[in-house]
Design a protein around this nucleic acid. Structure first.
Lengths: 340, 340
DNA sequence: CTGAAAGCGCTTACAG
DNA sequence: CTGAAAGCGCTTACAG
């Protein structure tokens, strides 16, 4: 036997037809148990594996999911948001459990990926993870919808368009802000883009606003400062706040990466965390625990998130009913807000 | 036209044969330029993509690489070593640049993955990344060798077996230790498994030993303490050192994760870093910068590493000559060793 | 419960 | 430069 064994080789050795081999390998109830056993034994001995391409071509499904991580073109090329990295871990494991392979790709928003994965039959469905301007992103989603591509997106429920799994950003933002208020902070700045271009950040901002209002505090536009999810943006945002003379005794950053940069800027200006300014982040990336001081934050459960993403997509592929879901967040109090 | 377009559809519309379409889509020099242009225009209009399975089945290559991350079964299920995560980022980008898709899988050492990926033609080659007992791992590599599977491994040069890309662990360990000696530390503990079961750690240990000897310092067995790559193991190792009354004024941890856990244990015992004990890590994971105090470490260039892994593997697949390579490390001095 | 046959959508000798 | 034909290795009606 030269080269890899095929189902014909096994058929020959087992004294059955190739069709029977194919059925036996997939444990078809149509095949006599002893035939199944014999075929599988021979397959094992020959170290035979079903050819993925042949079976996918014939059955028109690949048992593969594609994970597309799209990034803001402005993001540093080498740095991937740690939050997504931990999501990736959980998605990978969930795929394995469901018997799917996972193709991973990082994309720039500008690339022409949207047509590729399903059209070329590389994957049965796509998981979209990313950050960047949602308004720029919508046309891509619409194209996927038009093409009937099966996908699930990590993020907010989109109006009318595809399936999504996201966390309760508004509630998380409200919890974070209420925590700061409870610790007697009254002038709480919000750092992060607060517009429909960044719906997740915007939802966190809305939670922030609601908490302020319920506490009878006023919402001051001067206390909001734009930032995308990078340390640098967090640093710059604090400088901007300081430069324009805005006073604040607490700071709610729309992500941990922003918060970490913000703390550095505060400390560079001689402000103490939490004594002068309490700081709250969002995500609970691994670095949060190690920041100085350790960063209070709103944890997104990446393990559950990854599982839900995969499960939703697989169900969609199987034609089962699916709905977008929202998973709860959890406040993690650490030293950066004072008396954890 | 219902369903996806095929090359026959394009052939029909372009008024040429299907063979010509296939050639034109791959820019074959055999095809007249204007035919190429016409075919490609029509393909674009139809949103046609070559079916991956059909082309792979026929050409017997999949333009896909598999990344297998294998872990110590003892490792916490949810936590992936951040070092490998950043490697993953760089591998993903390198694959995209080379025109390969990337399948990602996390494996337990006990799983039967080794036969799967190439045998089933899912991937043209495999990138192996991982930690765990090298001795347990060798049989898997030998099986890959026997099967003629193309793979490249991140790690030390194995005797006789496959291709590898690794960093210069011995030199890195020596640099780290010399740095501590230069800062007047004399009793330097080494935390990490120092045996052929963990060859990378062992090489770091050998660098440590060499630096001590070149400085005329003695190598004390009591100063070495086993630990695998987890925070917990680092914490426990320091407790063990302390408990047995070993005195030390510096500590070289075989990885940053170990170092971070070790610093926590030191601080829990009222020891100051770096005043009482200077601490040095290895890897330069993102957390290192944020540790308190910021952790001195030996940086492994994950960007270069990922590129080299992919390039070596792709060359091997193409039948080009390849050699195992070693990439240099770089000492990053931060506060945990004193006067960075 | 099993087999003979068709066909998934390409690539690639082979022939012109 | 182009076309007709074979075939990659399976799965799955269809017939028994």
């Amino acid at each position: 036997m030269k080269g890899k064994a095929t189902s014909f080789d096994i058929a020959h050795l087992a004294g059955v037809s190739q069709s029977t081999v194919s059925r036996a390998l997939r444990n078809s109830p149509l095949v006599k148990p002893e035939t199944i056993e014999k075929v599988q034994r021979i397959a094992r001995e020959l170290n035979y594996k079903v050819d993925k391409h042949a079976s996918s071509l014939r059955s028109q499904q690949s048992a593969t999911l594609a994970l597309l991580l799209f990034e803001d073109p402005t993001t540093d090329d080498s740095l991937i948001n740690p939050f997504f990295l931990s999501m990736l871990g959980s998605i990978t494991r969930a795929c394995a459990r469901q018997g799917f392979d996972l193709l991973v790709s990082f994309q720039q928003l500008s690339d022409d990926w949207h047509a590729d994965y399903e059209d070329s039959h590389k994957a049965d469905g796509i998981i979209l993870l990313g950050y960047g301007d949602d308004v720029d992103y919508q046309p891509k989603l619409q194209q996927l919808d038009r093409q009937g591509t099966r996908y699930v997106r990590w993020g907010p429920l989109s109006e009318g368009s595809g399936l999504s799994v996201g966390c309760d950003n508004r509630q998380g933002g409200q919890d974070a802000t209420e925590h700061l208020i409870r610790l007697n902070r009254r002038r709480i700045a919000f750092i992060g883009n607060a517009s429909h271009h960044y719906p997740e950040f915007f939802a966190r901002y809305q939670g922030y606003v609601r908490a302020l209002m319920e506490a009878g505090l006023s919402v001051e536009p001067a206390l909001q400062q734009d930032a995308i999810t990078t340390e640098q943006a967090g640093y710059d945002a604090v400088e901007a706040l300081l430069q324009r003379g805005t006073r604040f005794d607490a700071l709610f950053a729309a992500s941990d990466l922003i918060a970490v940069g913000a703390m550095q800027a505060l400390q560079a200006h001689g402000l103490r965390v939490p004594e002068d300014v309490a700081v709250m982040g969002f995500d609970d990336i691994p670095v949060a625990r190690f920041a100085s001081p350790p960063l209070s934050t709103v944890r997104q459960d990446t393990k559950l998130a990854g599982e839900q993403l995969v499960e939703s997509l697989v169900r969609q592929i199987r034609g089962e009913p699916v709905r977008s879901t929202t998973i709860p967040t959890r406040l993690i109090a650490r030293k950066s807000c004072g008396e954890g």
